[in-house]
Design a protein around this nucleic acid. Structure first.
Lengths: 206, 206
DNA sequence: CGAGCCATGTAAACAGTTACATGATTCT
DNA sequence: AGAATCATGTAACTGTTTACATGGCTCG
């Protein structure tokens, strides 16, 4: 369901091909949603046959074509309807926390490596999010500019602020993740040094 | 893949039926993973035919039976292998942030209601997580006690600490979510009062 | 002319949700 | 006797991942 609206939202900013949408999802830019091309192309065809978007063949070089899609008025209505509808957040599955809860089955090295990977991943993500948020606020993001061109001046600030707000959420989350991983590394140090002390106590003088 | 290990991890604490596993997932207790019974029962049968768990028919009243599963040594090895293997965190899909990024398509009331639902949800979750974490540290959780009975004394502290650590992560996340929703509500106030001021400026004296 | 990018596809498998269904047991 | 709980299932559908595949365009 959300892939549908993620695509509609992209196309509300500007017309684009499936490939463009894929890059928006893939590239450093769009952390709100992502999908592989094998999911995007069929979904765009479905959206077109449902009348939410319109496709147009565009020539590319001599022999090739590509299909550029634009959102229709029906599509915009659907997008509005989706945003307007309040959805209860749902319990999520959390593989990271699940694994951490069972670290006693792992070697200390594996647990450490896992937490280091966790910290690294979210440190990188954090840097991207912060950069993206600044670029949004400075109106330096091409897709955002395209969107603003289709927005009455009085509403432009809100458009920018909402996007920045979404990234604030990602940033807060990433910070919490990094903190959590570091807390875990300290815990491993503590448990490990505790073990060493016990072993030392059993063999005093060794 | 993770449902598999979530079930193995539960059965490593104590033997149980599919129904018991369902309650662990459903009840206020287990926020690390969840699944409906329609997913649990077939998965248990698969795990059994793969030799990772063993089922045993247990009578229930006069005419009924239930099937209680226990983890096998092979199952424990698989569990160890899963925990031991370092997995890169993956980009997640984030429907809440996605919607927030497009709040300009919503009425202020809908945006507000969405954020209030968000705050409420994570406030409740936060309270559950904090309670659960305390119960874990106080060794007041039945499933944890069952697990500790099967654990050598020297490793019991680590078992408890890792579980509490997992809940720390959930707590940090929930706090960040509540903060984010409140930041959003302040933003709506700000944008809305800004709009009202503009309107007032256009019709001075009205 | 070859490498890297642009552009789009099929198909199988896996994971998760939702609707429908059944029947015994226990408690009031 | 009826309600709540225990216990387990099938089936259709939706969403996501992964593997396999093809071919033109652009630049050096």
């Amino acid at each position: 369901m959300s892939l549908r609206v993620a695509l509609l939202a992209l196309l509300a900013a500007r017309p684009m091909t499936g490939f463009d949408a894929m890059r928006q999802f893939d590239a450093s830019v769009d952390y709100l949603w992502h999908a592989p091309h094998t999911q995007i192309y069929p979904e765009l065809r479905k959206l077109e046959s449902a009348g939410l978007i319109e496709g147009e063949e565009v020539p590319r070089g001599e022999h090739a074509r590509k299909r550029r899609y634009s959102i229709t008025e029906t599509g915009r209505e659907q997008l509005r309807a989706w945003v307007e509808k309040v959805e209860e957040p749902r319990r999520e599955r959390d593989p990271q926390r699940l694994k951490a809860a069972y670290f006693e089955w792992a070697s200390p090295e594996a647990a450490r490596a896992q937490l280091e990977a966790h910290a690294r991943f979210y440190e990188d993500a954090l840097a991207s999010y912060e950069k993206q948020r600044e670029d949004i606020l400075a109106r330096r993001v091409p897709l955002l500019l395209a969107r603003l061109e289709r927005t009455p001046p009085g509403e432009q600030e809100a458009v920018v602020e909402f996007k920045a707000f979404a990234y604030s959420g990602l940033i807060a989350r990433a910070r919490a993740e990094v903190e959590w991983a570091r807390e875990g590394l300290r815990l491993l140090d503590r448990l490990h040094s505790g073990r060493s002390q016990e072993e030392a106590a059993e063999q005093p003088g060794a």
